[in-house]
């Protein structure tokens, strides 16, 4: 069953499980608008998040998606827009 909404909590769980957490970063803190790079996540990590998001939500993640996802909140917004637009 595919979810109707994707939340920051969902994303943080994905971040934790598929890329780990950098020393000195607290993912339970207020991180929604902090760029992924500042949270210690490189481009490979963001690609890993995308693959997991696609698996979890069914929203396709074409090659240029990364540009829409500079921060966790931007990623969550992008996914929800796609869900609402019926893109999956």
């Amino acid at each position: 069953m595919q979810p109707t909404e994707f939340t920051l909590t969902d994303l943080v769980e994905i971040m934790r499980s598929c890329a780990g957490v950098d020393e000195g970063v607290d993912l339970d803190g207020d991180i929604g608008d902090t760029p992924f790079a500042e949270l210690g996540y490189d481009s490979l990590a963001v690609l890993a998040f995308q693959a997991r998001i696609q698996e979890r939500t069914g929203v396709p993640m074409p090659d240029d998606t990364v540009a829409h996802m500079p921060t966790p909140n931007a990623a969550v917004d992008f996914v929800n827009q796609q869900i609402r637009a019926g893109v999956r």
Partner: peptide
């Protein structure tokens, strides 16, 4: 081992 490195 740092957790960022454990997963990769």
């Amino acid at each position: 081992v740092p957790s960022r490195l454990v997963v990769q």
